[in-house]
C-alpha cells in the first residue's frame, strides 16, 4: 500500500502523531471555514507543499494516492454542472448546463481538495498503528480499537494470501476469460472466507497461550520532543485557519 510505504519512510515518521493529528484537524476546520474557493485552494496548496517538501513524500506517490478521490470529485462536479428539467406536459426531460451554480461548485471543489490534502498529510506521514494509539488516547472504546488492531495486523497476511492465490490461478489460466475469472475469483474469496475462521482460531489460541484475557495492548513508540511538536502544530493550525478565514 502506497500510504503505508510513505508512512514508514517519510521525514516526519518520528514527529508526534498528536501534532500531526492537530495539523490535520486544523486543515479540515480551515477547509470548512474558508471564505472563498481561492482561500480553500490556498489551504490545499499549503498542506500539499507541507507533505511534499516538509515530510518528503514523493510528488508522484502523493498524486497517485489522491487520484481516486479526485476522480470521484470530477464525476460529482460534472453532475452538479448539469441541470435536469422535467416537463410535465410533454413528459420530456431536458438537460442544460448551469453557469449560475459555478461559484457554489467551485467552493465545494476547493473545500474537498483542502480536506483531502489534510487527510493525506496525516495518512502519508503516520503509520496506522500510531493512529490507533492516538485514538486510544482519545478514549475510543476498547472493542473498536481491538477490531482495528486485529484488522490492521491481519490485512497484510490476507493480502499476501490473495496475491499468491491469484498468481497460482493465473498460472493455470484461471483468469483467461470473463467466466473463468469470475469462477476463480469466487474460489479465491470462498477460500479466504474459510481462512478467516482458521486464522482467527489460531490467533485466539495464541492469545490464550499468552494469558490474554482482555483488550489487546501493544508497546507504543516514545516520541521525543512531543510537546514542542504539538506547540508548533497548534501554531501552524491556528495560522492556517486564520488564513482561510481572512483571505477574500
Amino acid at each position: 500500500m502506497l500510504t503505508e510505504q510513505s508512512a514508514y519512510t517519510n521525514r516526519w515518521r518520528w514527529v508526534s502523531p498528536t501534532a500531526k493529528g492537530i495539523l490535520t484537524c486544523s486543515g479540515i476546520v480551515a477547509a470548512f471555514a474558508a471564505s472563498s474557493p481561492r482561500a480553500s485552494l490556498l489551504v490545499a496548496a499549503l498542506l500539499m507543499a507541507t507533505a511534499i517538501f516538509g515530510a518528503g513524500i514523493p510528488a508522484t506517490r502523493y498524486l497517485r494516492v489522491g487520484a481516486p478521490a479526485l476522480l470521484f470529485l470530477g464525476a460529482s462536479c460534472l453532475s452538479l454542472l448539469v441541470t435536469l428539467k422535467f416537463t410535465h406536459g410533454g413528459g420530456t426531460l431536458t438537460m442544460q448546463s448551469n453557469p449560475a451554480e459555478l461559484s457554489h461548485i467551485a467552493r465545494m471543489c476547493g473545500r474537498s481538495c483542502a480536506c483531502l490534502t489534510a487527510l493525506l498529510l496525516l495518512t502519508l506521514t503516520t503509520p496506522l498503528s500510531d493512529i490507533i494509539s492516538l485514538l486510544r488516547s482519545c478514549k475510543v472504546p476498547d472493542t473498536l480499537l481491538d477490531l482495528m488492531t486485529l484488522c490492521y495486523r491481519t490485512l497484510f497476511v490476507l493480502s499476501a494470501a490473495i496475491h499468491e492465490t491469484i498468481t497460482a490461478q493465473s498460472a493455470r489460466l484461471g483468469h483467461s476469460t470473463l467466466a473463468l475469472s469470475l469462477r476463480s475469483m469466487g474460489g479465491l474469496v470462498a477460500n479466504l472466507t474459510i481462512q478467516v475462521w482458521q486464522r482467527s482460531q489460531a490467533l485466539h489460541i495464541a492469545a490464550l497461550a499468552r494469558n490474554n484475557d482482555g483488550a489487546l495492548r501493544f508497546l507504543e513508540h516514545p516520541f521525543a520532543h512531543s510537546r514542542r511538536h504539538i506547540t508548533m502544530a497548534s501554531g501552524a493550525g491556528v495560522t492556517l485557519i486564520l488564513l482561510a478565514v481572512l483571505i477574500p
Binding site: L147, M148, L150, L158, I162, M185, R199, S200, H204
Partner: peptide
C-alpha cells in the same frame, strides 16, 4: 464466546482486502 473477538477482527481485514480486489 471470547474466540469471536479474533473472528470479527479477521473478518474486518477480510472485508478490507475484498475491496482491494479487482472484479471482472
Amino acid at each position: 464466546h471470547p474466540e469471536q473477538r479474533m473472528l470479527l477482527g479477521v473478518a474486518a481485514a477480510f472485508t478490507f482486502v475484498l475491496s482491494a480486489l479487482k472484479m471482472p
